[in-house]
Design a protein around this nucleic acid. Structure first.
Length: 626
DNA sequence: CGGGATGTTGCTACC
DNA sequence: CGGTAGCAACATCCC
């Protein structure tokens, strides 16, 4: 029996510590082991990923590659520029591979991709080993323990989790790695088509990394931002397992902080340093194992007298992640949208998603049903709503790729049920592009929570953009940091600058006028007027939410699917849907003309991600409507 | 099944 | 200033 020749396929597990899958690969005692990242070039042109998250991913890959080389100077992370669905069958043959090993991923796209790869491997006579390690529990087992249903509350998730027994203890990093074998790539590369290029706005140069399987220098190197033609990243937060473990050491060194952490009490206005751990991007890319995090925190909690408890404690935060992964794993693609989703309430928001009628999936495009709502949305996205708390958060998000969880609450509530009355799917798409820690399960789940369509329903509890931040930051230091034009404003007006007398505005060097598209006026800086009068808008939203709750439709309701929901909202004075003669569907049938084969733009760049191939499916051109 | 308590993270007025 | 009641009100959990 010849010794195994193993491809270890890295995806959202960019680490050496606590990797059950990597351990399984090493347990085979292979003759050779190839640490491989397969990179579908489609990501470059079709992913909704800003430069900050690109940089974080490349950081993780570089750090991992260096760590691998430290264990074996002949080895590294071999980055191969082709989609796994087409690459692996050629690679298995060229390198005489006997085993493929990877970590389980329950994201909807990942399941499609991986089942395809598993089939290819079986056809090629390659054995496949898959281990869970991305989450505390295997999401599929969690669902099983929840009577086959998606985990839609934290108590369900906790109850289901406790039936699965103790969370596995972390596995130490290996102290040696086998050599890789020969690395000939004597086969053709499947080249990507560059159109549609929905990622164009992330780039200011040409993409030059994907011209050959092993990259421009033929050395399997991790691409650079420059090679990818990406605009420079602006975030101070950097990726990689080395950094993640150092951060975890520093956090857990403060045992009181670790043991008594209560999320709702942490300040969303703290920026130097932030009030929470900032480990979420590392959990997403797998540069930190969630189980490592869990046990490092739990061991401190266990020996502490006044420790906080789930769900507000640090480990509680990880349990929410489990809940969202359980919900997503049960629902698949539908989890990230309202249309067809039985768990989600239907609210007739503005700017609804266009639906691909062939797949019943959202397309990443939307319909501008109301120009005013579009104006609200664009000003929200660009951080010029005229509400400094909201604008500061949105500017921090775009610049740094991270905002505090309660800050996310504030902007999400403002965009949806507590202000703009814009569809939560619009907000989720902006977060998808800008957040370093974006993962579909948590992002979609949190947007559903905050917009009160699932997980949470107390829509009458509405965040004020003026009062809420003052709980932590009366002086407005956070606002002054991210909206520097308001730096000199008196604390009395820093959250509502439009109320300051004109003479004071001029004295403080900034006049409040317009919509934020002009930065200066003569010697003065300019900050926009509020996009609407908040309290009136808030009342209108709550009234409409109440009505929509009363109507009581779910995303899977026949009337949502066929468009007849409109009749039920006709007497809703302040926002009756335009016309009753629209096309079928809650939203719109997607234009036939923009379709191509095999891609869905909701796909993400990271391992959980990429080209959403549907057997019978279609691919939509993603055209940004803003 | 009914009904009361609870739900990680609201706001305002009032003592 | 800090704590609390009232606001108008929803779903889930648990006895």
């Amino acid at each position: 029996m010849p010794k195994p020749r193993v491809v270890y396929w890295f995806r959202t597990d960019l680490r050496l510590h606590d990797s059950p899958a990597l351990k399984a690969a090493l347990d085979l005692q292979p003759e050779c082991l190839y640490p491989v990242w397969t990179w579908d070039p489609h990501y470059v042109y079709r992913a909704r990923v800003g430069p900050n998250r690109w940089q974080f991913l490349l950081d993780c890959q570089n750090d991992l590659s260096e760590s691998i080389t430290k264990l074996n100077s002949k080895s590294k992370l071999f980055v191969i520029r082709e989609a796994p669905q087409t690459l692996f069958q050629k690679l298995f043959k060229a390198w005489n591979i006997t085993h493929l090993v990877f970590e389980k991923d329950t994201d909807a796209y990942a399941r499609d991709r991986d089942s395809k790869v598993v089939k290819l491997a079986k056809d090629a006579g390659v054995k496949v080993i898959i281990k869970t390690g991305r989450t505390l529990y295997d999401p599929d087992e969690l669902i099983q323990q929840n009577y086959g249903k998606p985990t839609m509350s934290i108590s369900q998730a906790q109850a289901a989790g406790s039936k699965l027994g103790e969370i596995p203890r972390p596995i130490p990093a290996p102290n040696q790695l086998p050599d890789p074998g020969k690395r000939n790539l004597d086969f053709d590369q499947e080249k990507p088509t560059k159109s549609p290029d929905i990622n164009a706005e992330q780039r200011d140069g040409d993409e030059t990394s994907y011209h050959a399987l092993a990259g421009p220098k033929n050395d399997f190197a991790v691409p650079t931002m420059e090679e990818l033609g990406l605009k420079p990243a602006t975030t101070p937060h950097r990726g990689g397992e080395t950094i993640a473990l150092k951060m975890l050491d520093e956090i857990t060194a403060d045992e009181v902080y670790t043991a008594t952490f209560e999320k709702p009490k942490t300040a969303p206005t703290a920026f130097s340093p932030q009030a929470t751990t900032l480990l979420s991007p590392h959990l997403h890319f797998g540069s930190l194992s969630s189980r490592e995090f869990y046990w490092r925190a739990q061991d401190i909690v266990s020996k502490h007298k006044n420790a906080s408890k789930p769900p507000t404690s640090l480990t509680g935060q990880l349990l929410f992640r489990e809940m969202y992964f359980g919900a997503q794993a049960a629902l698949g693609y539908k989890f990230a949208q309202t249309y067809g989703n039985a768990q989600v309430r239907f609210i007739p928001w503005h700017l609804p998603s266009k639906i691909d009628t062939a797949t019943n999936l959202i397309t990443g495009t939307y319909r501008i049903d109301d120009p005013e709502a579009q104006e609200y949305f664009v000003r929200w996205r660009e951080g010029r709503t005229g509400f400094p708390w909201i604008d500061a958060l949105m500017r921090q998000l775009r610049l740094e790729g991270w905002i505090h969880h309660l800050g996310r609450h504030a902007v999400a509530c403002f965009l949806t049920r507590g202000g703009c009355y814009v569809d939560w799917e619009r907000g989720a798409e902006v977060f998808e592009e800008w957040l370093l820690d974006h993962e579909t399960a948590c992002n979609a789940g949190n947007w559903q929570w905050l917009s009160c369509v699932a997980f949470y329903s107390q829509f009458y509890r509405c965040y004020s953009p003026v009062s809420f931040p003052q709980k932590w930051d009366k002086e407005g230091k956070f606002v002054r940091r991210y909206c520097p034009e308001l730096e000199m404003f008196d604390a009395k007006f820093v959250y509502e600058p439009w109320k300051a007398p004109i003479a004071d505005q001029k004295k403080w060097g900034c006049v409040v006028k317009g919509d934020g598209t002009t930065a200066t006026e003569g010697e003065f800086k300019v900050y926009p007027k509020p996009v609407f009068e908040f309290s009136a808008q808030r009342e209108k939203c709550i009234r409409r939410m109440k009505n929509a709750y009363h109507v009581g439709l779910r995303g899977s309701d026949k009337r949502v699917l066929n468009g007849s929901w409109r009749e039920l909202f006709m007497d809703d004075a302040e926002g009756s849907p335009e016309g009753s003669n629209g096309p079928p569907g809650a939203m719109l049938k997607h234009e036939e003309a923009t379709r191509e084969e095999g891609y869905h733009p909701q796909a993400d760049i990271d391992g959980d991600s990429g080209m959403k191939t549907k057997e019978r499916g279609t691919r939509e051109t993603q055209v940004k409507a803003h």
